[in-house]
Amino acid sequence: MNLIEARQQVDLKVISIEMAYRAHRGPGHMGIGRRGRANRSTGHMGIGRGWRVQKKLEMMGIREGAVIRKVSQQAFRGPIIVEVGSMRLAIGFFMAMAIKVEEID
């Protein structure tokens, strides 16, 4: 389960962050018939970019084994707000998709 599918307001444990996070499926790429220009509008981010995103997430405390909480999720693939410790972060939809989590009982 990734962070998008996860329930809100329950403790979640981060299992992994997919390094092949590619933001060329980013927000420019929505709706029908826009597939062709998505790459151009948001650019390739590829694996290199994925590394960077993983590092950034790590820096903010989202790393394997961390316990986080999903607070809210904006409509239409908007940003997700998560709580890490006592801090709140807004993260993009596709970044959230790369974060694999499981519920803690």
């Binding site: 927000p27 151009r40 509008s41 940003p79």
Partner: peptide, 15 residues
């Protein structure tokens, strides 16, 4: 957004 080359990363910020 369509024609300028480069990346448009997603939001990632502390609230």
């Amino acid at each position: 957004a369509r024609f300028v080359s480069g990346e448009s990363p997603e939001i990632f910020t502390e609230i």
